[in-house]
Design a protein around this nucleic acid. Structure first.
Lengths: 349, 349
DNA sequence: ATGAAAGCGCTAACAC
DNA sequence: GTGTTAGCGCTTTCAT
């Protein structure tokens, strides 16, 4: 049986209340001598507090819930790592849940679980999907009643205090495509993400903005919807080649890598025969023989920001009560263009 | 205030015990009618059980702890995803902790936290470091008294029932280097991992085995100790070139990618001017213009195996008590060679 | 400076 | 079938 404060109390000849106080770390009225004795006994008896009991009694935990999509995506993994690192250093504990399918049953199970967890904050790392109307409503209905701050790495319908930390995706796509156009490309293929993701639509808007501004027409046939994976990128290439594109804008770097891979099979040289630009700015971009140009936001910085804001919110609630947080807000990060070798003027000189 | 079983009990005019039973899902003696009423009321009142209270009362949770190193490594991320997926489908909840520094204070904090969490199993995903004698002892002392099965993705000193899921690293390195030798290479550089990792030593042994078997001598100057990152690989290249190597064996693919990157700066063509072989078999290997040859184990399969064994152990304890598990054991996965384009015969024909 | 006691929300004997 | 009751381990007034 695990050691409890009762055991320590008995051993030290004091009450459990005294043990609890002495071990709490706060400065109390317990005499220094008793404190010391209790701490030593706890150490000696291998005492570790039961956080279940503690959370229950205190109506709050030290856990911060995180919901993410797919860690195999290096961009998401990096974001997650940098959030986690901040939280842990501040004494909180990230509890990570993966939700990578749109199976409504799983979705519901997970949200119920989250509601059961007594979290002190939630980080929602899933892309926003406006079309999941029912699901979103359900999620918000449950999660928004938790009375904890909620942070989302994208737009969301949450009402709770907290922040939507977004990138201006429309502008990001605009910048990328505008750049392709500035290099002379006019038939520009697009490897999109899931159509249900808001970010996909935003980027398509940005793509279209750039075309329109340049007096080019928007052709929906130039959009291929991928799945953010290497194989999605591979599958996109033959389709887009069939559409006679001279350049491709991919909504993540990973699918652009798929294009690189498949281009070899077609004997196509990048960028000579095909220009490519991606999204995310992952480290692997620079590994390629022809480094991938891309558009992205500072991942680590965003992660740190999220982590810090989570900590700040929790502390604020602790000290000034739950109303201290103010209205939910949205923060936009500006996208940057990272120009490397994967785009070439068209037609070739 | 959140809805509790008390609220439901009051609403339905029954006792909390009845509510608890009705909602437990097990088949009980509660009349179908009452059950239905309670379930509906729970739904209507937005009831979500408090797992803290439940775990406390039941002396067990549904949480499986996971400790990992660095998710930016795609191999680890993939392993983690496949473990998580199995656990979640079985109704368990992965609670992920990241421990990527050897700061003893963090180490200790984390282990204490884990001990506090009431986990039903633990997955230890950190490479084994025999030299951390004190730390390992401390970790084992704490963790082994938890009375839960412990799974490690490497060798370990844990005594609890559970499995060390290993790869035969020595053999893996042996296969890779033997292959390089079979292609005529005799001065083979090695980009190692942290010297404190057992896996690093094992692989160095395998490296040496291959040399010895071929009658080549082992030269410690040909070993460069890296940090598993791209930049580690980049830094290794100039050093190893200074040692006149014609081929490099890298202990992970990521550092091999760093070599690719840096080789460009030196105007070196892979594999013409330099042969490279890695470890891990990550998807990016195939993206490179010259796909990276590597040696690896089936990551997803290992992840699924770990997940399944965790579930099996927990179920077994549930039904047959904690002694049903038997002795701790070690399982070895066989490494496979994945030959692609990054190695060329030496001297060039 | 310390202890008694109530209670957090849920579970599980055992009683009726 | 359903209710009573006594906890789980910890925290927190309120006495003393």
């Amino acid at each position: 049986m695990r050691t409890t404060i009762k055991d320590i109390a008995r051993e030290c000849g004091v009450s459990t209340a005294t043990v609890s106080l002495a071990l709490s770390g706060r400065k109390t009225k317990i005499s220094e001598k008793t404190c010391k004795k209790i701490r030593e006994t706890a150490e000696r008896m291998n005492y570790y507090p039961n956080i279940m009991a503690s959370s229950l009694a205190r109506h709050k935990s030290q856990s911060v819930g995180i919901v993410i999509n797919d860690l195999r995506n290096t961009h998401i993994a990096a974001l997650f790592m940098s959030i986690s690192s901040v939280l842990q250093n501040a004494g909180f504990f990230p509890v990570c849940h993966i939700l990578n399918e749109n199976d409504p049953e799983m979705y519901e199970m997970l949200v119920r679980r989250i509601a059961s967890e007594n979290l002190c904050a939630l980080i929602w790392g899933k892309p926003y999907e406006p079309s999941l109307t029912e699901m979103n409503k359900k999620v918000c209905r449950i999660v928004d009643t938790l009375g904890i701050p909620i942070f989302s790495t994208d737009n969301s319908e949450f009402k709770s205090p907290g922040i939507n930390i977004c990138c201006d995706y429309r502008k990001a796509a605009f910048l990328a495509v505008q750049y392709l156009i500035s290099q002379g490309h006019t038939r520009i293929g697009c490897i999109a993400g899931y159509p249900s993701f808001q970010v996909t639509q935003d980027r398509i808007d940005g793509y279209r903005d750039a075309l329109t501004q340049a007096g080019l027409s928007y052709d929906p046939n130039l959009i291929y919807y991928g799945d953010y994976s290497l194989s999605g990128g591979r599958a996109a290439l033959p389709y887009l080649l069939g559409q006679q594109v001279s350049a491709i804008f991919s909504m993540n770097d990973e699918m652009a890598f798929g294009v690189y891979q498949e281009a070899r099979n077609y004997g196509l040289k990048i960028p000579d025969a095909l220009s490519v630009i991606g999204c995310d700015n992952v480290p692997f971009d620079n590994v390629l023989e022809v480094p991938l140009s891309t558009v992205g936001t500072p991942t680590d910085e965003m992660g740190r920001f999220i982590g810090q804001e989570v900590c700040r919110s929790i502390d604020l609630i602790d000290s000034d009560g739950p109303d201290a947080l103010g209205e939910r807000r949205t923060v936009y990060y500006e996208p940057n263009l990272y120009l490397r070798g994967s785009v070439r003027p068209y037609p070739p000189i």
